Every structure is written in structure tokens, then in C-alpha cells.
Amino acid sequence: MASVVIYTRQFCGYCTRAKKLLESKGVDFIEHDATYDPELRQTMIEKSNGGRTFPQILINDVPVGGCDDLHALDRAGRLDEMLAA
């Protein structure tokens, strides 16, 4: 199974939706809460190629974007293949 990392912040509906989608697929993921951590937020921006919104999701160290991007991958049938890699 793929390595999945998600950068989140508290009280973020998009973060919740993204995590629910991953959980519904049985995916284990590492969550980093960057709500009060500017250094972690900077790490997120660097690893996500400039992504500043929450959440930012990486699959096998490849930035896939945020919640809407994750759901778009799922609708296109590409998320499962990325998670299986």
C-alpha cells in the first residue's frame, strides 16, 4: 500500500472530507496538524510544491493537492491505482 501523508489544520471541513475518503478506502495515513506550527506549515508548502491551502496530500511523496483534487482523482478512477502502488 502507498505511503500517504496529509497536512491538516483544526476545524477544517475539507481536511475532514479528505480524511473520510481515505478512511473509507482503508488507507492508513500520517496526519500532520499544522494549525499552530509555522515550521510544519513551511515544510508542507515545500513538500507540496507551493500548496498553501489545507489539506495538502502526498501519496508516495508525490503532491496530489487538496481535498477537491483527491476527490477528482477518485471520480476519475485514478486514486485506487495510486494507493495500490
Rank of each mutant, 00 (worst) to 15 (best):
A18N: 13
E31V: 04
E39H: 05
R17F: 08
M44N: 10
P38C: 01
C15L: 11
S3D: 14
I45S: 07
R41D: 02
D74Q: 13
G13W: 01
N49W: 00
I45Y: 03
K25S: 09
P63M: 02
R9Q: 11
E81C: 03
G51V: 06
H32D: 03
L40H: 15
R78S: 14
T35L: 08
R75F: 00
Y7P: 14
G77C: 11
P38V: 06
C12K: 06
T43G: 00
V5R: 14
R75K: 07
Q56G: 00
A2E: 00
F11I: 09
R75Y: 00
F54I: 08
N60G: 13
G50F: 10
H32S: 12
D37M: 05
T16P: 00
N60C: 05
S3Q: 08
F54A: 02
Q56H: 03
K25T: 13
T8W: 02
L73E: 09
R52K: 15
R52T: 15
A85G: 15
K20V: 04
A18K: 07
Q56S: 00
S48E: 03
C67M: 12
S24V: 07
D61I: 04
E31L: 02
I30K: 11
T35I: 02
K25G: 12
G13L: 00
D61A: 12
L70T: 14
C67A: 12
S48Y: 14
A76T: 05
I57N: 12
I59V: 14
G26V: 05
C12G: 09
I30D: 11
L79D: 02
L73G: 05
Y7W: 13
Q10S: 09
M1A: 15
A76P: 14
V4I: 03
E81N: 07
D68S: 15
V4H: 02
L83I: 07
A72Y: 08
I30F: 03
H71K: 05
Q56N: 01
E23N: 09
V27F: 14
D74H: 14
I6K: 05
V64S: 07
L40W: 15
F54M: 08
E23W: 06
I6H: 04
T43R: 10
G13Q: 02
K47V: 01
A72E: 14
